[in-house]
């Protein structure tokens, strides 16, 4: 994988490369239009990997208990052991736990790759978020359409110092669990506040952003030079007045 930015700590194993090839996962996404020096690529934090492994471990333990309770009658059948029942129950037991091992392996691998293959790209005009392995989503959204920004984190995420930054476009419906199209989610970033501030700062330059009424235009556009020059003069006068007052005061 040659990518936009590859996490140096995250090395893909041969098996993973093979899997990515099999699923024909495309290379890292192209950044959307915008001035080249404004492009910033964020990745999920290292702790997000730990978090998703913990989530995986919790889920797989729960599944393990289900399998365990299913294998108790099989073990009992082997214990009673009468003729043909014993090998049959043994085979069922082996099959059951192979399925478990398979599920555990595949889900672990997908969790791992899901961490490694996420890109959150921010430019001066828009953002692009790519995530997923089996199902790949690549969202593109311009700042003009952003309605709100939200930073969320659960207790475990807080302990690990990661958070999700959600960027919401107008329109709605849908439950929050199911990723609806109107939301861009920077999952598990370690620098959530930095990302939030960056987006807020860039939004500020889009006076027409969102569906609300446009703010009155400032000293840009037609006759901009004159307006700006007047503003400079006004400020210079105010400065002189302030300095004078300050000198008189001291």
């Amino acid at each position: 994988m040659t990518g936009l930015s590859t996490d140096l700590d995250f090395q893909l194993s041969g098996l993973e490369r093979w899997l990515l090839g099999l699923l024909s996962v495309p290379e890292a996404p192209e950044p959307p239009d915008g001035s080249p020096d404004s492009i910033q690529v964020f990745r999920a934090g290292r702790k997000y990997y730990l978090w998703s492994v913990l989530m995986w471990a919790a889920a797989i333990t729960a599944v393990g208990f289900v399998f365990l309770s299913a294998s108790i009658p099989l073990l009992a059948a082997i214990g009673r052991g009468s003729g043909w029942v014993e090998p049959l129950a043994g085979a069922a037991l082996v099959a059951l736990w192979s399925v478990f091992a398979g599920v555990a392996g595949v889900t672990f691998l997908s969790r791992r790759l899901n961490y490694g293959l996420r890109w959150y790209i921010v430019t001066d005009r828009s953002l692009r978020i790519r995530s997923g392995i089996f199902q790949i989503n690549e969202l593109t959204m311009t700042y003009s359409n952003i309605q709100e920004i939200r930073v969320t984190s659960g207790p475990l995420q807080q302990a690990l110092g990661i958070a999700d930054v959600e960027v919401q476009a107008a329109g709605g419906g849908g439950d929050r669990q199911h990723q609806s199209g109107h939301t861009g989610r920077f999952s598990g970033v370690s620098n959530a506040n930095e990302i939030r501030d960056l987006i807020v700062d860039r939004l500020r330059h889009y006076r027409d952003s969102g569906l609300g009424e446009a703010a009155p235009s400032q000293a840009h556009g037609e006759g901009g030079e004159l307006a700006a020059a007047r503003e400079a003069l006004e400020q210079a006068r105010a400065l002189r007045a302030a300095v004078t007052r300050s000198l008189q005061g001291s």
Binding site: N137, E138, T140, A169, A170
Partner: peptide
């Protein structure tokens, strides 16, 4: 409002992808 490019692996094998376009209307889809 925003554009999503989505594909599952079967679609990728066939060289396809869906472009999902959202406007500001009330539905989640």
């Amino acid at each position: 409002q925003d554009i999503q490019l989505r594909s599952n692996f079967v679609e990728r094998w066939l060289g396809l992808a869906r472009i999902e376009i959202q406007t500001a209307s009330g539905s989640a889809g």
